[in-house]
């Protein structure tokens, strides 16, 4: 099945109305669409991971706070205020980074405006991912790891892989777009 229109029997249409468009299916345009799609997908994945982290943190806080209030160890108002501060802190550090990564990656995928800010945020999150895995290995070696730790490890590894794919796609996309721009101006990279 051809993806390009073959105008044979209806040259009349071309002569009258002009050839209106050609499919851009050379390797560079196909790669541009592919990496753009992967970049957007991994950006969405990063954001979803961040939202899940926040929800998990909130659930843990509710659980701990509930048990402390029930044990009358902490007065209610202080517990609520303290939880709000902790959640806000995690929100700022955790999800804001991921939001910046998501926003930058989506913008680059859609419009081609590339910035390095979101790449830097992604690298910071990657560094945290390395730390998280090392932390688990350390505790596993000391036989202090539990089921929750294993689940957290799976989450962190997944997040790590998504971020690696995001950064790789971003650079591949930039390279392909430079190549396309060079070809359109008559040169080659």
């Amino acid at each position: 099945m051809t993806l390009r229109k073959e105008y044979k029997e209806h040259d009349y249409l071309i002569n009258t109305y002009g050839s209106f468009a050609e499919a851009r299916n050379d390797k560079f345009h196909v790669d541009e669409r592919r990496y753009s799609s992967i970049l957007k997908l991994t950006a969405n994945g990063t954001l979803i991971m961040g939202i899940w982290s926040l929800i998990k943190c909130f659930m843990e806080m509710i659980g701990d706070m509930g048990s402390e209030i029930l044990a009358d160890e902490v007065p209610l108002l202080i517990a609520i205020f303290g939880s709000a501060v902790v959640i806000a802190f995690f929100f700022m550090i955790g999800i804001s980074f991921r939001y910046l990564v998501w926003r930058g990656a989506c913008r680059e995928a859609a419009s081609g405006k590339s910035t390095n800010g979101y790449i830097a945020c992604a690298i910071i999150l990657l560094a945290y991912g390395v730390y998280a895995v090392a932390y688990f290995i350390y505790h596993a070696v000391r036989k202090e790891a539990d089921v929750q730790g294993v689940l957290k490890l799976i989450f962190d590894v997944t997040s790590f892989i998504i971020l690696c794919e995001l950064i790789a796609s971003a650079f591949r996309l930039r390279k392909v777009r430079k190549e396309i721009a060079a070809r359109e101006t008559g040169g080659e990279l």
């Binding site: 993806l3 390009r4 229109k5 105008y7 029997e9 209806h10 249409l13 109305y17 209106f20 468009a21 050609e22 499919a23 851009r24 299916n25 345009h29 196909v30 790669d31 669409r33 592919r34 799609s37």
Partner: peptide, 25 residues
């Protein structure tokens, strides 16, 4: 309708469809 889109099966290739030309055929 004349349009350009990416079918799911096309592995990121795009298709350009020209309905006036197709309909006359």
């Amino acid at each position: 309708a004349r349009y350009r889109y990416m079918p799911a099966w096309a592995d990121f290739n795009e298709v350009v469809k020209d309905n006036p030309a197709d309909y006359i055929l």
